[in-house]
Amino acid sequence: MGEKIVFCKGGGCTAKLGAGILNRVLEKLPKGPKDENLLIGYDSRDDAAVYKVSDDTAFVQTLDFFPPMVDDPYTFGQIAAANALSDIYAMGGEVKTALNIVCFPETMDLNILGEIMRGGSEKVIEAGGTLAGGHSIQDSDVKYGLSVTGLVHPDRIYSNNGGYPGDVLILTKKLGVGIVCTASRVQEAKEEDMKEAVSSMIQLNKYASEICRKYEIHACTDVTGFSFLGHLHEMLDGRLSAEVIAEQIPVISGAADYANEFLLTAAGQRNRNHVGPYVEFEHVPFAMEEVLFDPQTSGGLLIAAAPDQAERLLVELREAGLPASAVGTLTEKKEKEIYVRGQR
């Protein structure tokens, strides 16, 4: 087991470039001629690209890969695949094909690579997709993920910025996996807390997305490396504000305790620096602030649902075994973009 420590140095979505840095690069890229069939591209800050091929069919493209955040290779493969597949579900699509993306040291045991890819393959199969190939390179560190293609009807795409004032914000998974994984890496996390975090990360958003199709959904995104508040900021798109109720945020057991012990990530602090100016906290404990800035790996869907349908949607999500919660509402644009309110 000598390679175990080398295998997990800390990864997942904490390895993402900060949103501020990324925006400065993307805004300088040449756009080229506009393609009317490209319904959603990178300039929208959405979860995946969507390209229309006919009046009733568009394909959804995404890719995601990162270093391990857990010691077990098979579990890492499951998490990385679930995370990559999630972008298709955040757009309201169905997974069709996936390609492996692999970086792996030639000196490391190939059985480790086999276990990573087995975990990923099983998640693709669970998603109803087909693993169609991939690409690998020799690297000094392990990285794994997928390029995924899905299908969606052009009129039923879930963009991340289509919300209206009054929409109810529903979150389908608990927050705090980044903090718990950090605590685990320094042997400070309880075993049951880490198990809860892993169980959340390997859960496909397929089931939540399928339930959402029965209801009026105005916007949807998956909560990953830019944190709950970072992805909510993108959802608001500079034209709306949001009221968030801190006590209704579902949180992984132990995450708040570890945050109070300052077992935090650099990515979480980048998120705070980038999004913090848009947020006003009222009577919110430090630990909950950190949970809301915590980068999530394979996080849940954040849904803006029509107010007259939100309760029924929430009931069905919970009946499916998901820890879904109504965490706030969208409002007209106010002085601050996001208000997070706690108990006095």
Rank of each mutant, 00 (worst) to 15 (best):
D71S: 13
A84C: 11
D109S: 12
I88G: 07
Y89S: 12
I79Q: 12
V95P: 11
A82Y: 04
I112G: 06
K96S: 15
A90R: 08
L99T: 12
Q138G: 08
I112P: 00
Q138A: 15
L99K: 12
I116M: 07
G92Q: 06
L113V: 06
G128I: 09
D141F: 02
E115W: 00
D139I: 00
I101C: 05
A84Y: 07
M91W: 00
S86Q: 01
S121D: 12
G119Q: 03
T75F: 00
L131E: 11
D109N: 15
D87E: 09
A84K: 11
S86L: 01
A82N: 08
S136C: 10
K123P: 02
Q78F: 00
G92A: 03
A84E: 09
P68K: 01
G134R: 02
Q138W: 09
T75C: 03
G134E: 04
I88H: 05
S136P: 00
V102D: 12
M117F: 00
H135M: 11
L110H: 04
G129P: 14
T97E: 15
D139Q: 01
A80M: 06
G77L: 02
L99D: 13
Q78A: 07
I116L: 09
N100M: 15
D141I: 05
D72C: 06
G93F: 04
N100G: 10
E106C: 02
A132Q: 14
N111D: 13
I125G: 03
F65T: 06
T75L: 14
L131P: 09
I101R: 11
G93V: 10
F65M: 12
P105Y: 00
C103N: 14
E122P: 03
E126M: 13
G119M: 02
A81D: 04
C103R: 09
E126F: 04
L85N: 10
V124R: 07
A98L: 11
P67R: 05
V124C: 14
K123Y: 02
A82P: 02
A127K: 08
Y89M: 09
L131Q: 14
L110K: 12
L85Y: 04
F104D: 06
V95M: 04
H135I: 15
Q78L: 03
G133T: 09
P105S: 02
L85V: 08
A84R: 13
I116E: 07
D72Y: 06
F104L: 09
I101K: 08
S140G: 13
N111T: 12
F76N: 05
D139A: 13
G129V: 14
D71I: 03
A81Q: 06
A90H: 07
S86I: 01
D72H: 11
D64Q: 07
G129H: 08
D141H: 08
